[in-house]
Each structure stands twice: as structure tokens, then as C-alpha cells.
């Protein structure tokens, strides 16, 4: 099965599971990365699809963290630079995927441990004034990463 087909199925599944809220953005397969006990931060990932027109995710909040921010990673010659972003633009009909190594909802100052099997409530606020409540399961991420950045460098002998 190709990845588009998988994405479509996931999207359909996500739509079913989210119960189709009043907001104009479909949230697909949201999840939170399980982190070790005592870890100060983690991230939430999901697919976002604006169904009715261009809109932006401008804010997220959750009771699981003292502070919730929208962040991205800039891969700069092998150096990972994490930076906050003001908003995540969503173009009508396109899916923007928040995923490891890129855009994410950063959960800073965890107020309780985030363990596999738990779920985390997150409120997403959009530029059109709508809000959406999601419940994101906590997952211990296993490795099915895109390989595009991977590779070996020769050891310097």
C-alpha cells in the first residue's frame, strides 16, 4: 500500500474518531510522544486539514503542561534548531503534518507523567476564532521514520 493510501485511510479514520467538530479543521491521528518520567517536556503531533478555507493554527493549550507552544525544527547542516512559530498556516484542502523532526505542539513543564495508554486533552485555537478540543493518545514512538536525512558519515581517521 502506498503512503498516500495509508494517509487517506488514517485521515478517514481520524475524521470518524474526531466525531467531526464544529471547527473547519480536521485533526488527523493526533498523538503525544511518551517521554521518560521526570522529563520536562514532550511534543504532540497530528495532521491538520483545513476543509473550508485557509486558516492558521495560532495557539494550543493543555492542562498537561504549564505552557504550550507551537514549534518547528530547522535542520541546518546537521544541527537541529528548535524555534517557536507564531502560527501554522493551513491551506484549504492540504494536510499539514506535525511530525517528529518538524512542526510540533511543544508541551513544556509537564504537570504529570505522560505514559503510553494515557491521553492528553489539547485545545487548538485557529485564526478564524474557532477552537477545537482533541484527545491525543500517548504513544511510545517506535521507529518508522522517513529516511531522507539519514546516512553515515565516514569516521575521521
Amino acid at each position: 500500500m502506498n503512503s498516500n493510501a495509508v494517509r487517506l485511510i488514517l485521515m478517514a479514520f481520524g475524521l470518524l474518531m474526531s466525531g467531526v467538530s464544529s471547527a473547519d479543521v480536521a485533526v488527523v491521528d493526533p498523538y503525544v510522544r511518551a517521554v521518560p518520567p521526570g522529563a520536562p517536556a514532550t511534543a504532540a503531533f497530528m495532521g491538520l486539514q483545513a476543509d473550508k478555507g485557509d486558516v492558521a493554527l495560532v495557539k494550543a493549550s493543555s492542562d498537561v503542561a504549564r505552557s504550550v507552544e507551537l514549534h518547528t525544527h530547522i535542520h541546518d547542516n546537521g544541527v537541529m534548531r528548535m524555534r517557536p512559530v507564531d502560527k501554522i498556516e493551513l491551506k484549504k484542502g492540504e494536510t499539514v503534518t506535525l511530525q517528529p523532526g518538524g512542526l510540533h505542539v511543544m508541551l513544556i513543564g509537564l504537570t504529570r507523567p505522560v505514559k503510553p495508554g494515557d491521553s492528553v486533552d489539547i485545545e487548538l485555537s485557529f485564526s478564524d476564532g474557532t477552537k477545537q478540543q482533541i484527545s491525543a493518545p500517548v504513544r511510545k514512538i517506535e521507529m518508522k521514520m522517513p529516511m531522507k536525512h539519514g546516512g553515515h558519515m565516514p569516521a575521521k581517521h
Binding site: 535542520h75 541546518d76 546537521g78 544541527v79 537541529m80 534548531r81 528548535m82 523532526g101 521507529m143 521514520m145 522517513p146 529516511m147 531522507k148 536525512h149 539519514g150 546516512g151 553515515h152 558519515m153 565516514p154 569516521a155 575521521k156
Partner: peptide
């Protein structure tokens, strides 16, 4: 900000390989 490299160390403590972020 940090580089994300896994250094593979041989039995003598020498770096034998450097695996950059995203390798399988």
C-alpha cells in the same frame, strides 16, 4: 541547538562511525 549524531565506538574506545540524524 545541537548536532544529532550517533557516534559508534569500537572495543578500543575509538569512533568508528558517525550516524547522522534519521538513519534507520
Amino acid at each position: 541547538d545541537h548536532s544529532s549524531t550517533i557516534y559508534i565506538i569500537d572495543k578500543n574506545g575509538k569512533v568508528e562511525d558517525q550516524i547522522i540524524h534519521g538513519a534507520s
